[in-house]
Nucleic acid binder design. Structure first.
Lengths: 137, 137
DNA sequence: AAATGTTGTAAGTATTGACATTACAATTAA
DNA sequence: TTAATTGTAATGTCAATACTTACAACATTT
């Protein structure tokens, strides 16, 4: 079980946008310099954040800005924006339907895993970008 | 963010051991038939479960049995047994230490992610193998 | 209108991890 | 000894992730 690195990068991106707004033009190159990855990675993440209505990106001239206030953006919003795959858990497998266990395992595990997922989402939702900003300073 | 399929397979394995004990000899082949994977996968997972003191495997003659009662085994025990990588979250990255955000991002995210991890572990710990057994029947 | 800087996007490569498969020595009971 | 099974190594395959290069589209500035 593991988060991809997209959530951390997206959070980092949003923090940079807000911390340095006004001072610098926040281009994908600028963000990439702080995060330490290729600018294309940042552009792709910006597209996802834009689709989720969290940021605005100026095509041509360049520069990204937040579209909501930091109080209104939670880690869950960011998580949903960049982790397209909602399936958190492997329920895959091809269990044997002729076996009592194989027949039931997936629905049983799914029930429990889904509950855990909801708990995680609840926690992510309780953390705002604003609180992270305050921790940065 | 995603579980590997090792936890589901390990749970499936333990359930098969307990459900069919006495009726059949529970070999890696037998378990593999119910799970729907290669027997070697099961053997490797059995080794991990054995190391965690959850099962006993008879070398040579074959057959696996539980080493604790189903009430004493929780999903967290199984999780720890098979998910060696405890790092749940990507804190990797190489953020720029010369940037205010880059300098602080990892410790901030780590704090929050660690709290979420503890919550997940708490939930996993509340689910016993016994309760899963009851759901199978 | 041209030059400049940036975004949007595609394509190719590399790396990693998970899982599958084959093979065989070691082990144990019959 | 024979037969069945485990323990373990080696190899192959596949998907996901990330890195990089490249360039057309776009908007501002000159």
């Amino acid at each position: 079980m593991k988060f991809s690195s997209r959530l951390p990068i997206a959070v980092h991106t949003l923090l940079v946008i807000e911390v340095f707004k006004g001072q610098y033009k926040i281009t994908s190159d600028f963000i990439a310099g702080s995060v330490g990855v290729n600018p294309v990675i940042i552009r792709n993440i910006l597209i996802q954040l834009k689709t989720a209505n969290l940021v605005e990106v100026a095509a041509g001239i360049g520069g990204a800005t937040l579209k909501k206030s930091p109080q209104e953006i939670t880690l869950l919003d960011i998580f949903h924006a960049v982790e397209a795959d909602e399936s958190l858990f492997h329920i895959h497998e091809h269990p044997n339907p002729d076996c009592l266990v194989g027949r039931n395992i997936n629905s049983i595990l799914y029930t429990h895993f889904d509950k855990i997922k909801k708990t995680v989402e609840q926690e992510l939702n309780s953390i705002t970008l604003q609180s992270l900003l305050e921790q940065v300073k």
